[in-house]
Design a protein around this nucleic acid. Structure first.
Lengths: 199, 199
DNA sequence: TTAGTGACTTAACCCAGGTTAAGAAAATTA
DNA sequence: TAATTTTCTTAACCTGGGTTAAGTCACTAA
């Protein structure tokens, strides 16, 4: 399934053409290694236990990345929206079973890159390999920040931070997912929202 | 201050000579770029707000890596023992103020590598650059696992997991630090330990 | 020897968030 | 449009861990 530049998001084009300054030829080559997949709402792009086949770019819509504990409760590590890279990198790079589930929250269009294609592309275009290393470094840093946040802030403070920094998320995804992101029950989130709105 | 092979830990030698199979000359070269620092117990190797000068290897003893929140409470992200690499990588690579404090819990001997030395070494020995990328990837994965753990386990379950996986830590470092690692008060840890020992 | 300091424990009381259960509102589907 | 399912809210009660405060134990210093 071939992908044409007209079919990818402006952010994707901006990343490769403006930020990374790849040539048209390089961009077309890069694009030819990707594969487009559609994942309808509620369907899984990756399930815990499977081996992650792709490094993936969200071209349209949103997904949630979560783990399931022994009690069956789901914990959302992070949301992914347009222009995000998703997947269980540990599973992808080490070809081991994933611990993370990736599920579409809206009908998703995803650009997928297989491991061998990634390696081939990396050899042909070293600048691209460097790009991925940098992206992963950023992802690394943001995970450390998340860890700090989860460890040092109460559920209420994390809620306030989320609604201040990303109010648009609340327009777009159900509150039950916000609760799973904050690691509280939907009832507790509801109670908290009422208490805060009274003030 | 020159460092001789006889002055570094067996793990350090094992890493470079056996695992990475560097030559004697390469190893001597690598070592010449490091600088040895002594950090007495309770002293700081890095303070939040400073810019991390070094990527560092703990040759002897242990440290705690923690953040301080607005209330002044300290949260230990992870402990570091012999054969660990420490520092605030985001601060080190982006030359921005650190958010993490690194404090010696015992009298530490640390092998330090400055950023420009790291880059020079990386150019001279590409295999070393690759080693650091791999080490950082592993560190990345372990942070994601930590995040999952903090999100999905109760304080009691995290305590049990820690004492099962690393009982030796309890022989070595004060319980108050364990409490900061679990993000509970020392009193609560004490109460919990009593409750668990009764069963 | 004793005073002082830091590490750990115990106990009483409090509160954020969990649990259970029921109901209201919104979105889907027939 | 009504029927059904999903999402969200409310309320009563419970519990794990926070808070405060006091006490014990071990180690150091004078």
């Amino acid at each position: 399934m071939e992908i044409y530049p007209s079919e990818v998001s402006p952010q994707f084009i901006d990343l490769f053409m403006n930020k990374m300054k790849f040539t048209e030829e390089e961009f077309t080559l890069i694009l030819s290694f990707f594969r487009r997949e559609y994942v309808p709402r509620k369907f899984f792009f990756l399930r815990a236990g499977q081996i992650a086949k792709y490094k993936a770019y969200i071209n349209k819509a949103s997904a949630r990345n979560f783990t399931t504990d022994e009690k069956g409760d789901e914990h959302i590590l992070y949301f992914s929206f347009e222009d995000w890279w998703v997947g269980d990198l540990e599973s992808f790079y080490n070809q081991q079973p994933a611990t993370i589930n990736v599920q579409a929250m809206e009908d998703c269009e995803i650009l997928c890159l297989q491991k061998d294609n990634l390696e081939r592309l990396g050899e042909q275009i070293p600048k691209l390999k460097q790009l991925f290393i940098e992206k992963e470094k950023k992802s690394f840093f943001s995970h450390i920040q998340r860890l700090q946040e989860v460890k040092s802030l109460s559920a209420e403070d994390r809620y306030k931070k989320l609604i201040n920094k990303h109010p648009e998320i609340f327009q777009r995804i159900p509150l039950q997912y916000i609760a799973m992101y904050l690691d509280i029950e939907p009832q507790s989130l509801s109670r908290m929202r009422k208490r805060l709105s009274c003030k």
